[in-house]
């Protein structure tokens, strides 16, 4: 570790901890998952950046939405996102979560994922190259440093907006709201 960082470590230990242990939840939401194995294995080795796959949402703090999100997948995505502990970061991987991409007129894919869960950053392309994951990770580091990766705060503040949108597509959700206190007041 570089000496200059020691003061930073001492000042913000939690920030540095979040930065260098981005554990990505193991959830293959779409075809973008195909670029994850090369990233994790010998050629690109994401562990150099502290990125590891995590089996359970409780231990993960990075959610890579890899590729298109179908209506049926949105339900487990929302559920998984709500199970993750704060602070949590989401990155949309590929064109499809941004605006539907290839599937802009498909009846079964979600067009803009950020209407249903907050997204901290996007990686464009179909399919994005593995290098772009590392660019995204370093960018996320910068955002965490500056306190700009605030997706989870946005989710808490505007919980009613997100929950209403989720219910518009998925019908009545069968689990209680994550922040019940936010459901009553009008924050729109």
């Amino acid at each position: 570790m570089d000496r200059g960082k020691i003061s930073k470590w001492l000042k913000y230990p939690e920030k540095m901890g979040h930065k260098y242990s981005l554990w990505a939840i193991y959830f293959a939401t779409g075809c973008g998952i195909m670029e994850i194995p090369p990233v994790l294995t010998s050629r690109w080795d994401a562990e150099r950046f502290g990125v590891l796959p995590a089996a359970t949402p409780r231990q993960a703090n990075l959610f890579l939405i890899t590729g298109y999100v179908s209506v049926k997948t949105l339900r487990p995505i929302v559920r998984t996102y709500e199970l993750m502990r704060e602070p949590k970061y989401t990155v949309g991987f590929g064109s499809c979560p941004i605006n539907g991409g290839m599937y802009w007129d498909s009846y079964n894919t979600i067009k803009r994922v950020d209407k249903y869960i907050p997204i901290d950053g996007w990686i464009a392309g179909c399919m994005p190259r593995p290098e772009s994951i590392f660019i995204a990770v370093t960018k996320l580091w910068m955002m965490i440093d500056k306190g700009a990766a605030t997706g989870y705060i946005r989710y808490r503040e505007n919980y009613r907006y997100y929950r209403e949108n989720q219910e518009r597509i998925l019908g009545k959700l069968d689990w209680p709201p994550l922040y019940p206190e936010k459901m009553g007041e009008d924050n729109g």
């Binding site: 539907g100 802009w104 007129d105 498909s106 009846y107 979600i110 067009k111 803009r112 950020d114 209407k115 907050p118 946005r154 505007n158 907006y161 949108n165 518009r168 597509i169 729109g188």
Partner: peptide, 21 residues
């Protein structure tokens, strides 16, 4: 069943957070 019309009336009518705010 017209998929493009369905997409318009199902997904596109949902406002984004900025529009809502």
């Amino acid at each position: 069943f017209d998929i493009r019309e369905y997409v318009k009336r199902t997904f596109d009518v949902i406002p984004s957070l900025e529009e809502k705010q």
